[in-house]
């Protein structure tokens, strides 16, 4: 797939932690509304690729372009603001603030963007209804099941209406049925809002929810779209 019309493009990313190279010249691009699975064995650099794409980590070299701007040339504050406004995140575990209840957790990104509490929680609740977890709104994360917690996390990632959704092993801690449901709801919601989804996973059945997959091996990303 050509980078033309792409929402997010990464070019020649290099990143090393200490002496271990995590990314070694990775390329990546994604279109609006597209779900791309990033696959590969553990330690291949999948997560690092996601972190670089999302502007959480700055690559040692290479560029990440989002909407015509190079993320690696932005200040930390600018990237934070971009992540708050344009990106959404779902992780495998440990992502909900334990002392906030579920609806407050979902409303958190909106509130970080300065939305008033009442409005933020109302919008959060709509998303929780979408993800079928409205009934646990007043519970704390410690009091809900793993599947419910993960749906709350998905609701949180979608609440700001992100252009790109980054999901790092979103079903890693769930059983098949729950994982499937979370993936269904996630991809459905993303397609509806024309959000691009970068889906890091090592599970084929999760990757099957994507439109195409990119395989990361030895720090290099290989786009499998053209291979038939």
């Amino acid at each position: 797939m050509t980078p033309a019309g792409s929402l997010l493009i990464a070019d020649g990313l290099h990143k090393a932690y200490g002496r271990t190279p995590a990314l070694d010249g990775a390329h990546f691009s994604i279109h609006p509304g597209e779900v791309v699975a990033v696959m590969g064995p553990s330690g291949s650099g999948k997560s690092t690729l996601l972190h670089c794409l999302a502007g959480i980590v700055t690559p040692d070299s290479g560029a990440v372009h989002y909407g015509g701007r190079d993320l690696s040339k932005m200040s930390d504050a600018q990237r934070s603001s971009l992540r708050r406004g344009e990106f959404g995140f779902v992780f495998q575990f440990g992502q909900l603030v334990p002392e906030l209840n579920c609806v407050e957790n979902v409303a958190l990104p909106l509130r970080l963007n300065g939305v008033k509490r009442k409005e933020a929680e109302a919008r959060a609740l709509t998303w929780m209804e979408r993800l079928e977890v409205a009934d646990v709104r007043a519970k704390r994360p410690g009091e809900v099941s793993g599947g419910q917690g993960q749906r709350v996390a998905v609701a949180r990632s979608l609440v700001t209406g992100p252009r790109v959704l980054f999901a790092d092993e979103p079903t890693g801690a769930l059983d098949s049925l729950n994982g499937e449901r979370v993936m269904e709801l996630l991809t459905e919601a993303a397609r509806e809002t024309r959000a691009a989804v970068v889906l890091v996973t090592h599970e084929a059945r999760v990757a099957a929810y994507s439109d195409r997959e990119v395989v990361v091996r030895d720090g290099k990303a290989r786009d499998m779209a053209g291979v038939r």
């Binding site: 084929a204 099957a208 395989v215 290989r222 499998m224 291979v227």
Partner: peptide, 24 residues
């Protein structure tokens, strides 16, 4: 051989995507 496997995986995934779609 790695290339061969990658291509095969892509083929498998393509079918899985179809199945997933049919399932939905």
């Amino acid at each position: 051989a790695g290339d061969l496997l990658d291509v095969q995986r892509a083929e498998h995934l393509r079918l899985m995507r179809d199945l997933t779609q049919r399932k939905r």
